[in-house]
């Protein structure tokens, strides 16, 4: 897949249609990633647009070095999100009304409300995590990447990602226990 893509990326440097194909291939993934990092659709749209415009402006300098094109896009998105957080210096909480929830595991409106509340608490806890841990969880569960792929995007080894994932779950457990205790 990555090897097939290198030809398309080369073409995209001069051919607008080829860039359009890359856009179609990755826009949903980049949007999802940004959405979970900023927590609202308005800023997710703005940052997604800026990610692809920046990619177009710099695609001439893109050199294939074994990593997929998507890793480069995620890095652009990650930098823009980091700037966005610096500018806003606050974190927004994801509204679960906007998130496509999986089908409820339990029947009945009471259980559904409880389930939503639990998910809200969980997402709020995720948004209080440091940037790299949030990035890891989004790449793993939203983008469904393996540890090797996540390592490529984040510039870390597979072992480092495994260890970070473990520490992230431990942090979340502590945060959720603290919330429940209140």
């Amino acid at each position: 897949m990555w090897a097939d893509e290198s030809g398309l990326v080369e073409r995209a440097k001069t051919d607008p249609e080829a860039f359009g194909i890359l856009y179609e291939r990755y826009v949903n993934k980049v949007y999802s990633y940004i959405y979970y990092r900023v927590g609202n659709h308005h800023d997710a749209e703005d940052l997604t647009a800026r990610t692809f415009h920046r990619a177009l402006d710099h695609i001439d300098h893109y050199v294939q070095r074994g990593a997929p094109f998507s890793a480069w896009l995620y890095r652009i998105a990650h930098n823009l999100v980091a700037n966005w957080h610096r500018d806003h210096s606050r974190r927004k909480v994801v509204s679960l009304d906007d998130v496509n929830l999986s089908p409820p595991l339990r029947e009945g409106p009471q259980h559904l409300a409880e389930q939503r509340e639990e998910e809200n608490e969980l997402l709020a806890a995720v948004q209080r995590l440091p940037d790299d841990r949030q990035q890891l969880l989004i790449l793993k569960f939203v983008e469904e990447m393996s540890n090797t792929q996540i390592g490529t995007v984040m510039g870390r080894s597979e072992g480092a990602i495994k260890s970070l994932y473990h520490r992230t779950l431990l942090s979340l457990r502590e945060m959720l226990e603290a919330t429940e205790a209140q």
């Binding site: 860039f19 999802s32 415009h53 997402l123 995720v126 939203v142």
Partner: peptide, 24 residues
């Protein structure tokens, strides 16, 4: 729980189409 809560989110079709046009 993370796997249940963190699901892909799709952008609005109008936004996607507009951005595609701008980029092309």
């Amino acid at each position: 729980r993370l796997n249940g809560a963190l699901k892909p989110v799709t952008p609005a079709p109008a936004f996607k189409a507009r951005l595609r046009q701008e980029l092309l």
